[in-house]
Design a binder for these strands. Structure first.
Lengths: 234, 234
DNA sequence: CGGCTCCTTGATCAAGGTCAAGACATGTGG
DNA sequence: CCACATGTCTTGACCTTGATCAAGGAGCCG
């Protein structure tokens, strides 16, 4: 189907499955999932799906990092979410039966399991445990979106940059030196914060000067968590 | 239970039910719902629930208008949604088992049906049709929230004011003179747009001068829908 | 080494926030 | 019914924040 299809990852052995609603599937369902799904490798920069299209399935991230974003006027991105191993993406449009409201592009080489519409919806409609998981997932994301609306409307850029760094810390691990295990371009950080690239750079420089964070290329390390939290206004 | 409880509205006869997931309930379930729910009258200005608390049920709006909002720094509101007859509110925190992420306050005298946690979750877990409705509802709202994030991040205030007027038009009917059937204070409009009250007033005045809308007290009438749409950048 | 792209910084400018004052509307008690 | 108080609306003046434009620097690759 896809050119970069790779050898099957057995769902039963998949550690990521336990982080998702798929852990509620019984043996038969799991077998069916295993049969119907396909595992696909995506290189950095590749698109998984694009805004405005009708999706034909959902993706479970087995490995890698994916950015989910909307495209605004003159092509400027607004990143809604960074998805990582164990996250389910593209479920919103499938479940609400709408066109996709966002695009997904790979930030770090990824392995994704594609689960076709039909079987995903079958589970959703026949397995109450599974559907409750989906409900919780979408309601959680709704809560996060609502929070971000407030921030965008009321916080200034310094506060939002601080908050995004804290968000990254929550989402990603850190290496032995304390730098967070994610490499985003300055433009991408700006597209999470919802501001111009230059403004984000200035805020990052300020935070570095103030010894709140340290920067090494694209890597960020939090030095003074307390102060960063205070700045973010959480 | 509540001081302003009013006489029961029979679910079976309730027209609003047909707009909600409750239309999927069978006769027995409906009877149970009817028995467990309570109908409550709320006067303008009263709070239905507040941010940060654990909800003990959801509300189905039978009549009236309710604003759902988050409170930010120094008390400034950000309105997330105006809910009207046929809308279900407070379901997010119940379903995700989190604290309420927003408050609900009555804008126009309302009648609400309170459905306790227990029975609502029972339906969600045992009636697949009902749970699919909930999934669709939360995914739809998630899509709207995501859209609003993009707007807040990238559109200017003129565009956003125009967009909010269009949103009001979609949500509420108009009277015989073409004025929309909702009265919001300038501050409330500003709290939807996510800006200062004065800025909103200026934009409204401009749009009136340009003959795009007309203003009569708190009532708004759209004169030039095409131009308004163009301004909103949709 | 030249040609990319991304990052950084400075200068400038406009959008929109804030403050202040007056207009208008509404309600209240005398 | 008036006088007064209160709250909302509106407008003007001013100033801050952050966007935009421009130029130079750093890192990377063929």
């Amino acid at each position: 189907m896809k050119s970069n299809e790779i050898e099957n990852i057995f769902c039963e052995d998949c550690m990521m499955r336990l982080k998702t609603g798929f852990k509620t599937l019984n043996k038969d369902e799991l077998e069916l999932l295993d049969y119907e799904k396909s595992c696909i490798f995506f290189k950095k920069g590749e698109f998984i799906y694009r805004e405005g299209f009708r999706g034909n399935g959902v993706y479970c991230i087995n490995k890698g990092i994916v950015k989910i974003f909307k495209t605004g006027i003159d092509g400027k991105e607004q990143i809604l979410k960074l998805a990582k191993a164990g996250d389910l993406i593209a479920f919103r449009s499938i479940l609400s039966n709408e066109l996709s409201c966002s695009s997904a592009q790979v930030i770090e080489d990824s392995v994704l399991c594609f689960i076709p519409n039909k079987i995903f919806l079958k589970f959703a409609m026949t397995n109450p445990q599974f559907s409750m998981h989906l409900i919780r997932l979408s309601c959680k994301e709704l809560g996060e979106s609502n929070k971000y609306i407030l921030d965008l409307a009321q916080k200034n850029i310094r506060e939002r940059v601080a908050e995004v760094i804290l968000l990254l810390k929550e989402t990603f691990d850190e290496d032995k030196d304390g730098y967070m295990d994610i490499s985003l371009s300055r433009e991408e950080i700006a597209n999470i914060v919802g501001t111009a690239t230059e403004s984000t750079i200035r805020q990052l420089s300020d935070l570095k000067k103030e010894k709140v964070i340290d920067l090494k290329g694209k890597k960020i390390k939090i030095i003074d968590l307390k102060k960063l939290t205070r700045i973010s206004g959480i």
